[in-house]
Simulated scan of single mutants.
Amino acid sequence: MIEALRTPDERFDTLPGYGFKPHYLTQANGLRMHYLDEGKHAGKTFLCLHGQPTWSYLYRRMIPIFTAAGHRVVAPDLFGFGKSDKPREDSVYSFDFHRDSLIALIRALDLHNVVLVVQDWGGLLGLTIPMKMPERFTGLLVMNTALGTGDVPLTQGFLDWRAWNNKNPDMAIAKLMQRSCPHLSAEEAAAYEAPYPDKDYKGGVRRFPNLVPDAPDAPGAATSQRARDFWKKDWTGTTMMAIGMTDPVLGPPVMQALAKIIKGCPPPLELPEAGHFVQEWGERVATEALARF
């Protein structure tokens, strides 16, 4: 079994805007994954995947809009994030470890008529899943993210972020979120830090920048290359793209390149004031997504 930490529940008791009921799935590796499961099961299922260093709290502005329209929202916390278990050893966290855990959740909940909602690592991982089970997915809402194919040079913005991340293993997450999203209250910014009592809980957060495939033979690259082919040739669902235009790492140039890969991708919704964490400007995104889907 994998040795893991579990954040005390009381750290989540008074988070602003996050009055959702927790759900848990214990996977074959013995780790417990937390996920939100809101709304009715009669409509579409919006599967909302977060990235680094966030967790399902990121979707609190969008979830009520989707559920009010009669849809279901499932928003998991990746292992190492949020209310999910956090393996102690950084080496546990790998591209396939995270991807396999998401596939296991989709199968365990038997999700169908899924609109895949992704941003940051939610996309690097999530965009590789529909090719494995295309019958489950009917839509894609894609925000600032990319495919880690390993055969496209990494941007200088990302290389700078990775270097900074490696120099700061005890990342000050609340401060980072408030710099990226100046409209957050102090309490909202602190909520992003809630899952991590100390740096021992941040292994998953630390690992992600070093998991981005940076060569064609890097772990995850071949899977991402196959996914690129899927989105180019085989995708038949409805797509919406929203771009936080002030993102220095996964902003307009990266997203414009991704749009060319996704078959049938319409012109994106551009959010001039939004940065990397597009969901923090998510009310407009969710409302326009409902009209699209």
Rank of each mutant, 00 (worst) to 15 (best):
V114C: 10
V115I: 15
L116W: 08
V117F: 02
V118M: 04
V118S: 04
Q119T: 09
Q119K: 03
Q119W: 00
D120S: 04
G122Y: 00
G122A: 05
G123T: 01
G123E: 02
L124G: 08
L125H: 02
L125T: 04
L125F: 06
G126Y: 03
L127T: 00
T128P: 03
T128V: 08
T128S: 10
I129L: 11
I129H: 03
I129G: 06
I129N: 02
P130V: 08
P130L: 04
P130D: 06
M131V: 11
M131K: 15
K132N: 11
K132E: 15
M133T: 13
M133L: 14
M133H: 10
P134N: 09
P134E: 06
R136Y: 08
R136V: 13
F137K: 08
T138E: 12
T138I: 11
T138S: 12
L140R: 00
L140I: 01
L141T: 00
V142C: 13
M143Q: 14
M143H: 06
M143E: 13
M143R: 03
T145L: 05
T145V: 05
T145M: 06
A146I: 14
L147E: 03
T149P: 07
T149D: 12
T149M: 05
T149R: 13
G150E: 07
G150M: 04
D151H: 07
D151R: 07
V152T: 14
V152H: 10
V152Y: 08
V152A: 08
P153W: 07
P153E: 09
P153R: 05
P153A: 07
L154I: 10
T155S: 15
Q156A: 14
G157M: 02
G157S: 05
F158S: 08
F158K: 08
L159D: 02
W161K: 09
W161E: 12
W161H: 11
W161N: 10
A163H: 12
W164H: 15
W164I: 06
N165W: 08
N165A: 15
N166S: 14
N166I: 07
K167F: 12
K167T: 15
K167G: 15
N168C: 11
N168K: 12
P169V: 09
P169A: 10
P169Y: 03
D170H: 09
D170W: 07
D170N: 14
M171P: 03
A172I: 02
I173W: 01
A174R: 00
A174E: 11
K175T: 15
K175R: 14
K175P: 00
K175E: 15
K175G: 13
K175M: 09
L176K: 10
M177F: 11
M177S: 02
M177C: 05
Q178Y: 01
Q178S: 09
R179Q: 14
R179F: 11
R179H: 11
